[in-house]
Simulated assay, not measured.
Amino acid sequence: MSMRTQISAMVFMMVQAVLFGAGVLTILLTPLSNHAMLAMPVMIALSVCCQPLSRGRSHRGSVRDIGAGVESTTT
């Protein structure tokens, strides 16, 4: 497994944990707690579905940065 894949997996898990925690706090600390049995699965599905969208957005910017960083360190 490449280093890039390992880093992507690690970042994915960290972002997923933050999204899950924010969603749980939002559900439990608001009036949504009355409907937590319905709101929790919806929140989990939304956090999983939104993650690939943010990965694609950051991937486009990182390709340029990686190439620029390699050239600047070798000269």
Rank of each mutant, 00 (worst) to 15 (best):
T5D: 09
L29T: 15
V48C: 09
R64D: 06
V11E: 05
I27D: 02
S33E: 10
S8T: 11
M37R: 04
H35V: 05
E71T: 12
L38P: 00
M3V: 14
L19W: 11
F20R: 00
S2V: 01
H59C: 00
V15I: 15
V24P: 01
S2H: 06
M40F: 15
M40P: 01
T30C: 02
L46K: 04
L28H: 05
H35W: 04
L46C: 10
A39W: 03
F12Q: 06
S47Y: 00
Q6S: 06
A9N: 14
S2I: 00
T26S: 12
C50R: 01
M43H: 02
V63W: 02
Q6F: 04
G69Q: 07
V15M: 10
T74S: 12
M10H: 08
Q16L: 15
L25Y: 12
S54G: 07
C49L: 15
F20C: 07
L46P: 00
P52G: 07
L25V: 12
L46F: 11
G67W: 05
F12C: 07
A9D: 13
I66S: 07
G67C: 03
I27W: 02
P41T: 03
V24E: 01
S62C: 01
T73G: 01
S33D: 11
M13G: 08
I7F: 14
L28P: 01
V11Y: 07
T74P: 01
S8E: 11
R55S: 10
N34P: 00
M37D: 08
R4W: 02
A36G: 02
H35C: 00
P41M: 04
M37E: 08
R55P: 00
I7H: 08
S58D: 09
F12I: 04
L53C: 09
S47V: 14
G69R: 09
L29W: 08
V11W: 04
M13E: 10
V42M: 14
R60C: 05
A17S: 13
G56S: 08
A17P: 02
P52E: 05
R57T: 12
T26A: 13
G69F: 09
M3I: 14
F12E: 07
V63Y: 02
R64N: 04
I44R: 01
T74K: 13
C50S: 13
T74M: 11
F12G: 03
A22H: 00
T75N: 06
Q6W: 02
A17N: 02
G21D: 01
A9K: 13
G56V: 06
M3Y: 12
V63G: 00
R57F: 15
